[in-house]
Amino acid sequence: MTETSKAERKDQEKQRGPSVLKVMQSILAGAFGVQSDKRREEDFSSHSPWPYIIAGILFTASFVVGLIVIVNLVLASQ
């Protein structure tokens, strides 16, 4: 691939926004604290922060609900 086509593809990706998989990877990497500087810069340079905000809220809510379910299961088995 030429440098021009790589640059054009990156511009098209910025206009479309991040894919669901990319957002999920960023959220999980951020949650575990292992996100690279390169990925973080890509995330912050994206078109809109809303996909990351919504995914972060959903991840946090599902994590808390999961913890509550696990604790209730453990306490119920005693």
Rank of each mutant, 00 (worst) to 15 (best):
V34L: 06
V69N: 02
R39G: 01
S26C: 10
A31Q: 10
L75T: 11
A31N: 10
L28W: 08
E13C: 00
S62W: 14
F32N: 09
L75W: 09
A76G: 06
S45H: 05
I57K: 01
A76H: 08
A7M: 09
I54N: 07
E13S: 01
V65G: 05
E13F: 08
A7L: 07
F63C: 06
S48R: 15
K10L: 06
H47D: 08
G17A: 03
I27W: 00
F44C: 05
Q35T: 12
S48Q: 12
W50K: 07
S19P: 03
N72S: 15
R16Y: 09
H47I: 06
L58A: 15
R40Y: 07
H47A: 12
V74W: 01
D37K: 05
Q15P: 00
S5Q: 13
P51C: 01
G66Y: 13
L28P: 00
T4Q: 14
V23L: 04
S19A: 13
T4P: 00
V34T: 13
K10A: 15
S48A: 10
Q78G: 13
A61Q: 02
E3C: 01
S26E: 03
Q12P: 00
V65E: 07
F59V: 02
L21H: 03
S77Q: 14
I68D: 02
Q35G: 09
L75V: 09
D43T: 13
I70Q: 13
V65F: 06
S62K: 08
V71E: 04
Q35L: 13
E42L: 10
L21N: 06
E42K: 08
Y52Q: 05
W50R: 02
K10P: 01
R40C: 11
D11M: 06
K14R: 10
D43C: 15
H47K: 14
K6S: 12
V20R: 15
S19K: 14
S48Y: 02
S36I: 03
A29Y: 02
R40A: 15
M1P: 09
R16V: 01
K6V: 09
W50T: 13
Q15W: 04
L28I: 14
R9M: 09
R9G: 03
P51I: 01
A29D: 08
R16L: 10
D43P: 00
L28C: 10
V74I: 15
Y52L: 13
G66N: 11
D37E: 12
K14E: 00
K10V: 03
V20S: 13
A76R: 13
L58T: 11
R39C: 05
E13M: 10
I70N: 08
T4M: 07
Q15F: 03
M1N: 09
M1Y: 07
E42N: 07
E8N: 06
I54F: 12
N72G: 07
A31E: 10
V20Q: 15
D37N: 07
F44S: 03
F32L: 10
P51H: 05
G66S: 12
A29F: 02
I68V: 15
K38H: 09
S19N: 13
E8I: 11
S45V: 00
Q25S: 11
A7R: 15
K6N: 11
V64T: 03
A61P: 00
T60Y: 04
M24N: 06
L67T: 05
S5L: 11
E8S: 04
R40P: 00
Q35W: 02
N72Q: 15
N72K: 13
N72I: 07
